[in-house]
Structure formats: C-alpha cells, structure tokens
C-alpha cells in the first residue's frame, strides 16, 4: 500500500506511519478541517463536458466491460433472505451474455456469511454495510463491534457510514476519530466510508468530509447509502474525485471512489468512467480503485453488450432478473 510520497505533511505522516494503531486528528478542540472551496456552477459545467463525450465502438465495448467488473451488486432490504442473497450471488458470478463477473456483492452484515459461502472460490469480494447503516445513529462501541462481527461473518470489505449529524454540527474531530477507529477494527478488510452526500447537501461539505475520511484512513470514499435522495450524482462524485487527486498528490496514497445509487443505465455509467479517466487518469480505472454501487445497472450493461454484438436491442425478458 505504501508509495513514495512526493511531499507528506506532518499530520499525514502520522496517518501513514501509524504502527497499526488509529491515527489522531490533525485538528483539535472546536477547529474545523480546512478544505478548498467549490463552485457549484463550475462543477456543473465541468460535468456537462464529461457527459458530452461520445463513446463509440471499441471504446464503448471496453467501457461496458470495465463498468461490469466495477459493480458492487447490492441488495440492502429489510426483507433480504439467504435465498435472495444466494440468487444475487449467482448473478454476480455469472451475469450472462458472456459478461465478466462483477467486483463484489454488497449486503447487510447478517447476510455476509451466506454471501461468502455463495461466492467462495470465485474471487468476488463480499462487502457488508456496517456501523448502524444507514443512519449511523448508535454508539461507537456498538458500531465497532458490528464491524468486527461483519468481518468474522466473512466480509472482506466494510461500507461504513459517517455520523452526518455530528459532521453538520461541526464536530470534524468526531468524524475523524470514528473513521480511524473503524479502520483499525477492519484490520486487513477494506474500508469504504459513506459520506451520505444527499444529507450533506453542499459540495463544500462533501469536499471537507472527503478530506477527513481520507486522512483518517479510508480505502474508498463512497457517496451514498442508497436510502437518501439524491444518491450519487456526477457533480458530487467529481468533487470527491478531485479530493482523491489532491490527497494522492500530497501523500502518494491512492484512495478509491464508489458512487452508489442512481446509476441505472450504461450511458450514465460510461460518463462516470470518462470522468474518472479525465480527472484521475487510467490508474484509477480498475475495480481496485473505482466501484459502482448498483443493482439495476448490470442488466442495462448486458442489454448493451448484446446490442453491440447483434445491433438489435433485446427484450428485458432475455436477461436474468436477479
């Protein structure tokens, strides 16, 4: 994980050199994190340019293949059962139409064991949402305990939520500490930190939350739980990608990005990939550094794969509904 960093500021050195123990926040007392300002109109204009890219022919086929490999196929419902999860895992391993398997399945912690058994041997990751998902409204010890339990149940990726209420109340240190401690509890499991941008609302807040999460050790930063509207938008994702880029320049550490919710069709997914490519460069165009949290997207990609091959759109009935 360590890369030679061009410049590492003092507080970040603490993050990186921490000998397995949780880093401490660079700010103290009631101070807030410094983050660069964001102009929403400018962001919208930049995003419009990504959307206006016209991706055709071999570029399109390659992008579709890549998008499929980046999906965290997700089910997060109160009515989830082992049966449902096993069927989704079957789809994840073999989506059909000759498409590659997705990157991971994403489930509640109590479904992690079922999911782990279902994907055993396939190389797929099992992501469990944790830390009192989706609200995070619980005590830190319980959220830590839930995280350890999810990992013991077979999860190798943890999708945590930050305490948005405390963040909005100005308690940046509390957010830093919870992310750092949960990262410690994760051990070797990878930590995705959900900012729930739909609740943070402003892009300035998204940028600041991204900085805190990365400083505190996040392996990925993630937009949304999928339970709040709006979920992922390109504008929010762009701001987070810029934060990842700046963090990499400061520290040499590559943090991943996961937009989740709201990416339902191929065209939108490809626009996201264009954005990653032109903001962070091709090194991030890998399931190790970019994931898409989605359920409906997979079948739209499949339809496009078949359409590219046969030049005709097929009925949704020809694609498995799991």
């Amino acid at each position: 994980m360590s890369a030679s960093a061009p410049t590492v500021s003092t507080h970040l050195a603490r993050v990186l050199d921490a000998n397995g123990s949780a880093p401490t926040s660079p700010i103290s007392g009631g101070l807030r994190y410094q983050a660069p300002s964001i102009d929403e109109v400018g962001v919208a204009e930049r995003v419009a340019r990504f959307r206006s890219r016209s991706i055709k022919a071999e570029s399109k086929r390659a992008a579709i293949d890549l998008a499929m490999r980046m999906i965290d196929l997700t089910t997060l419902e109160g009515k989830d059962t082992p049966g449902k999860v096993r069927q989704m895992c079957a789809k994840a391993k073999n989506p059909g139409a000759g498409a590659p398997p997705v990157a991971a399945v994403c489930v509640y912690a109590n479904m992690a064991r079922v999911a782990r058994e279902a994907v055993q041997g396939s190389g797929l990751h099992v992501a469990a949402v944790s830390t009192s998902f989706p609200s995070g409204m619980s005590s830190l010890p319980l959220r830590l305990e839930e995280t350890r339990w999810a990992i013991s149940e077979g999860a190798d990726e943890i999708d945590m939520v930050i305490s948005r209420g405390r963040f909005l109340a100005g308690e940046d240190n509390a957010i830093f500490d919870e992310v750092a401690q949960i990262k410690e509890a994760c051990g070797p499991a990878h930590l995705k930190v959900i900012l729930e941008t739909g609740e943070l609302q402003t892009l300035d807040a998204v940028r600041r939350a991204s900085e805190i999460a990365m400083d505190a050790g996040a392996d990925f930063i993630k937009t949304s739980t999928g339970k709040v509207s709006p979920a992922a938008t390109m504008d929010v994702t762009y701001v987070m990608l810029c934060a990842i880029r700046d963090y990499f320049e400061r520290t040499g550490r590559m943090v991943g990005m996961k937009p989740a919710g709201g990416i339902r069709d191929t065209k939108t997914a490809i626009s996201y990939l264009v954005m990653v490519k032109e903001t962070l460069g091709p090194a991030w165009l890998s399931p190790d550094y970019f994931r898409i949290g989605a359920s409906a997207l997979a079948n739209d990609l499949l339809m496009q794969i078949v359409k590219e091959r046969t030049k005709a759109y097929q009925s949704p009935l020809y694609f498995s509904a799991d």
Binding site: I55, S59, L285
Partner: peptide
Amino acid sequence: IAVPGGAINAFVNETLYAPA
C-alpha cells in the same frame, strides 16, 4: 494497464476515444 483477467482494455489504455 491490464484489467482483471489480464485483458488490455481499450478504454483504459487508449489516450483517445474511438472516433465519433
């Protein structure tokens, strides 16, 4: 840059996009 599975992906490795 190879994607998992070892294939070279045109979207990842080409600087430009296919003509449109």
